[in-house]
Write a protein that binds this DNA or RNA. Structure first.
Lengths: 249, 249
DNA sequence: TAAATTCCTGCACAAAAACGCACAAACAGG
DNA sequence: CCTGTTTGTGCGTTTTTGTGCAGGAATTTA
């Protein structure tokens, strides 16, 4: 059998089944695994397949990319993301909400980090999936079209079963008097459950949202352990919060 | 034998078998391999064949260089998607697996359709979310990075709680003797649960996958209610399946 | 942490290609 | 008819290509 012929066969199999194993191909076409590996490597260099340990994957399959769209005040959010990442260590279980700040964090996670991320936000999950070393746990239930996250009693029940080390909340509004507030009933239920379950709750919020509030109450400030903004920790705007016992970063 | 005559013969052989070996041609026509090689080279320069190490391939063979942005065998999948959609009516609960065929169906769902779609496939969910009128239920659990779907006991337990009207399975391999088979253990577990829960199971499969099999068994043919391919329902290839009691569309 | 796969690197060896050359047949023109 | 040229073919020799194998490194799995 000719080399090109064999490669065409392999390519065909990959496109057909989305995945092939070097071992099974080698018995299929009766050549050594080395040869298969070399073929896969060539095909991968030509961009026809994606080579992975033990075989190859179809290219079309793993291309579920989300438009890395323009985010409002991205530079601030990036700063926040960096601070948030510094709290995560290897082996941690991290529960996150959705929101652009969280997404920014998800994209900036260092590649060596090994941790487990849990979320009901589709967008966040997509970002976590691209990461080579983190395990991703998706919270299921009905999907809210407006917020692109799973909401409902099932999701809340699932969250209550967990005891994650950290919970990152993309915060919509935070205020000394009203605490954390939001504007979507279903999201609020979910965030409440997240806060209850977690050992530490971290609020990510751009300074703009500090001292603002929204119609629905999520929780008191006292439930929050850490507050992250793009400002330095000793910014006067944040002073009341650290006075209230929140660790401000 | 004249040179032209010989080249005509070679060309004929290439078009007939899609490939020729210099070695076998040389004994066929009783000339040295050098001569064959020179002939092939000339034919290649004229664009009549594609020369490779050891012989030559027909042009149609290498035309499997499918256009880059197009999904593999998309037109077939579109045809399948259309047939699948005809089975869905308003108000139905539909459980689907992942796979490119399912994605094609998800994209083609008519905008007026009001139904509930349930899936653990991230890519499928993304498509369903774009639809204006369908409710989306996401099955949660750990995400398998290779297949981009949620897998695990939680996901399976959740599926077992449901009684969807229809279950669409993107099929990797179907065979009279082996039934439905696949190549990913976790995916197999999930698909089994899906079949068990559903009132009707529909297999979507391009004709190429008919009468092929993969290492892991999912279920017997008898569990399948409907089989959809891009072929007409009375195609001889499908005859054994309708004889086996499966409704073929 | 240990065991098992899988991967990579270099090497050996066979098959095929490339190159140069020889030689013979076909051809062209005096 | 002869001679010089072109063309087609085959034969060594040298390179290149394709493949398998051994071993150690890297990665996955238990």
């Amino acid at each position: 059998m000719l080399k090109k012929e064999r490669q065409a066969y392999i390519l065909h199999q990959v496109n057909l089944h989305n995945k092939v194993l070097s071992s099974s191909l080698s018995v299929d076409i009766n050549v050594s695994e080395d040869t298969i590996r070399r073929d896969l490597q060539e095909l991968a260099e030509e961009g026809k397949v994606i080579k992975v340990h033990g075989g190859a994957l179809s290219h079309s399959f793993s291309q579920v990319h989300f438009p890395p769209n323009e985010v409002y005040s991205q530079s601030q959010k990036r700063k926040i993301a960096q601070k948030a990442i510094s709290l995560i260590s290897n082996g941690m279980f991290v529960l996150t909400s959705g929101g652009t700040t969280i997404l920014e964090m998800a994209r900036s996670l260092p590649p060596q980090l090994k941790a487990t991320f849990i979320s009901g936000s589709i967008a966040a999950i997509l970002e976590y999936m691209h990461h080579p070393n983190i395990d991703v746990i998706l919270i299921g239930d009905k999907i809210s079209k407006s917020s692109k996250i799973t909401v409902g009693s099932e999701a809340i029940a699932k969250i209550k079963q967990m005891k994650p080390d950290l919970c990152f909340l993309g915060t919509n509004a935070i205020d000394l008097k009203h605490g954390i507030t939001d504007n979507d009933w279903e999201v609020v239920q979910l965030k409440r459950a997240m806060i209850e379950s977690s050992q530490k709750t971290v609020c990510l919020s751009i300074a703009e949202k500090i001292n603002t509030f929204q119609p629905i109450h999520i929780c008191e400030l006292s439930k929050i352990d850490i507050l992250i903004t793009e400002l330095p920790f000793d910014d006067p705007l944040l002073r009341p919060y650290s006075d209230a016992g929140i660790k401000v970063i």
